[in-house]
Design a protein around this nucleic acid. Structure first.
Lengths: 251, 251
DNA sequence: GTCTATAGCATGATAGAC
DNA sequence: GTCTATCATGCTATAGAC
């Protein structure tokens, strides 16, 4: 885990420099942030060469894709603790022995899944808000890019949320850190807006928490929103309107 | 489970008729809805006489309190699947054999916990909104009573949310049903408000979903809000303000 | 590189003493 | 009514054949 000795590997899933114009829509977002499964697994393989006992990259990447796909599917359906490695082998097509060439134990599976998502979330949020000056636009961009990313990598977000409390202390710290970090992004944008006189003077931290709650509901209750025919764009738009009403109301 | 042949037992945790004046505060709520652990477990015992092999009520109730306390604590910390019955015995003070006088299998533990919470949630929400005519007040009362109840029975709400996807089909259906049911309460209040011209014409169902997301965040991230010094009253007040800004803004 | 076979152990559940 | 002792099962993890 976490050797970070291969910058090139990380670059494999790099985000293209985003030219911020105005309203970011989902289709454009998908083009800009390309996160193919093989890209991600190539990165993972190179970051974890010491752990994985397979020499040929194309073989390793193919199996990593299967392993991670199956783990996310099974763990999201019945919980990571309830998912047995036999289940995983049946689903991924590997044998028990074969699987253990990629991990040392069940916990390594979690590390494999966590590490890449952290990197991508951090970078996306930063890339899509960095160059925006207007607080209103910046808040909207942060919300949209977070929603869009979670839409693109929904199984990963769901897994991270649901399994967070079962993690080892070290991993839990990492998970909490990224959680607070993204929340801080929202708090800071709001605080800047208040400072600039664009927003009313409200509790920025508490509102950031409410924003986070709404963002998370999008990927936690994905099935419900699909049934209702709510698109990610509609959801983003409604969030924007709700927040605008609160932040810009004349006191 | 679910014999329902003892109306008196259910009455044991009945809510006193609430005289709705105006702003319901948490202290008043706590007085009105008295949910002592023994009350709840007495109800549970009487509803499950056929399942529980213990004849003396005071003995059974004492142990049920321990079993449920321990189950909620352990399952909420490491997940229900990862909690072993030996863990539970250590924590509750019963032996393995002793425990099996109260349940037939591990799954019965879930039933024990679910059944009472459903009843209480349904009744509370209804009792505190039934007699309110004004949509604004009604929405506020629904939000407050839900927040207050989840504050009072936080471990139960947390358990229900986190373990919902591991339930058997029957139980999952029940869980989804109560979830949709409470969401419908909010949708209907909003729809009535729109009809009456008190609220703007927005998507009532989608807003109800966002409300649910914020309500749930209160008990899912309880630790964070404690660290930040956010009280349940502040949280309720902020939710009210956010929704008001959206619902009553002049279009 | 991948498989089958199995060791070693912890779990859910039960029988029977007190 | 509660305990200790034990069973059968199914798990993670590994050894060794191909």
């Amino acid at each position: 885990m976490r050797t970070d000795n291969n910058k090139q590997a990380i670059a494999a899933t790099q985000i293209q420099p985003a030219e911020h114009v105005t309203a970011l829509d989902y289709e454009r977002f998908k083009q800009i942030v390309s996160v193919s499964k093989s890209d991600i697994c190539t990165t993972l393989y190179r970051q974890n060469r010491d752990l994985i006992r397979i020499k040929k990259e194309h073989v390793a990447v193919r199996n990593l894709v299967r392993i991670i796909d199956s783990t996310l599917r099974l763990a999201n359906a019945k919980g990571f603790a309830a998912m047995t490695l036999r289940d995983l082998c049946n689903d991924s097509g590997l044998s028990m022995g074969g699987l253990y060439a990629y991990i040392r134990n069940k916990d390594d599976l979690i590390g494999l899944i966590q590490s890449h998502g952290f990197m991508l979330t951090r970078r996306t949020l930063d890339d899509f808000t960095r160059d925006i000056a207007d607080p209103r636009e910046k808040l909207d961009a942060a919300i949209r890019s977070h929603l869009f990313l979670s839409e693109l990598m929904r199984p990963w977000f769901y897994f991270s949320y649901m399994e967070a409390r079962h993690l080892s202390e070290t991993r839990k710290h990492e998970a909490v850190a990224i959680e607070r970090e993204t929340e801080t992004v929202y708090r800071d944008i709001i605080a800047e807006g208040i400072e600039a006189g664009v927003f009313r003077d409200i509790d920025a931290r508490l509102l950031a928490s409410l924003i986070k709650a709404m963002l998370q509901d999008w990927y936690l209750k994905r099935g419900k929103y699909r049934d209702q025919g709510t698109s990610v764009t509609m959801y983003a738009e409604t969030m924007r309107a709700v927040l605008e009403g609160y932040l810009e109301r004349n006191a």
